[in-house]
Design a protein around this nucleic acid. Sequence first.
DNA 1: GTGACCTTAACGACGCGTAATTGTGG
DNA 2: GCCACAATTACGCGTCGTTAAGGTCA
Lengths: 129, 129
Amino acid sequence: VPRREQGVYVISVAAELTGVHPQTLRIYERKGLVEPARTGGGSRRYSDTDIALLRRIQELTNVGLNLEGVRRVLELEAEVERLQREVDRLGKESADAVEQAHKEHRRELVPLNQAMVLYRRGGNGPAPS
Amino acid sequence: VPRREQGVYVISVAAELTGVHPQTLRIYERKGLVEPARTGGGSRRYSDTDIALLRRIQELTNVGLNLEGVRRVLELEAEVERLQREVDRLGKESADAVEQAHKEHRRELVPLNQAMVLYRRGGNGPAPS
DNA sequence: GTGACCTTAACGACGCGTAATTGTGG
DNA sequence: GCCACAATTACGCGTCGTTAAGGTCA
């Protein structure tokens, strides 16, 4: 079980790691961009994935996006990633499906000349390697 | 040849059609979000596709995006659309490829028992329908 | 010559980040 | 009891949309 998802950084450390002001981190949470875990006492605990997300947010704001834009861009980037995986999967699947079709035929059929040889020899089963 | 790409609307009409202030349209052009055609005299001419784009920009700014965010979102939406087409294409292609593989085998191979019959008859070509 | 277009400049409103304040938990 | 975190408020700066002013084409 990886511990990466567990919140380990308090807000001041998260601020250091990402170069974002602690107060700004609270704003990001209020706007729903990040959702760090909370301790029983109510303190925020940022996980490594939270840190990575915050760094991405930082990149986007640094090139001039506002927070609403950041939200939409993150959503769309996730969509792009999902579709890219789908394309990769379908690419392999297509090749595999063709291969599978060939194999089926190889199991059930034999070339005519080979069949004739088998027949002449009295062979009855089409058992090629 | 469709005329949709030809610029037909002057800036005041484009402003009416999109609900965007003429001066704002000039800002959008300066920021590279739209590139309407120009007449010899230097006047802008907006095409129907320009109008559609402006309406999309309007939607995005109305939900709170700034212009840099609009630019990135439009890019990502184009990317999503491209990938979606790719997924559709690969889906069909996969099925077609399997079909093609089957057909190839049907042309080159014959079932063993049918081959024997052909051989007995003195047939030489494997020409099943 | 009038009106619509062009450009640049100025104004007002809003969003974002930071700092200040007060309260609370470890 | 001290230091860090939590929440709210206030301030400064930049962006965006609109308006204003002056010049040009039809």
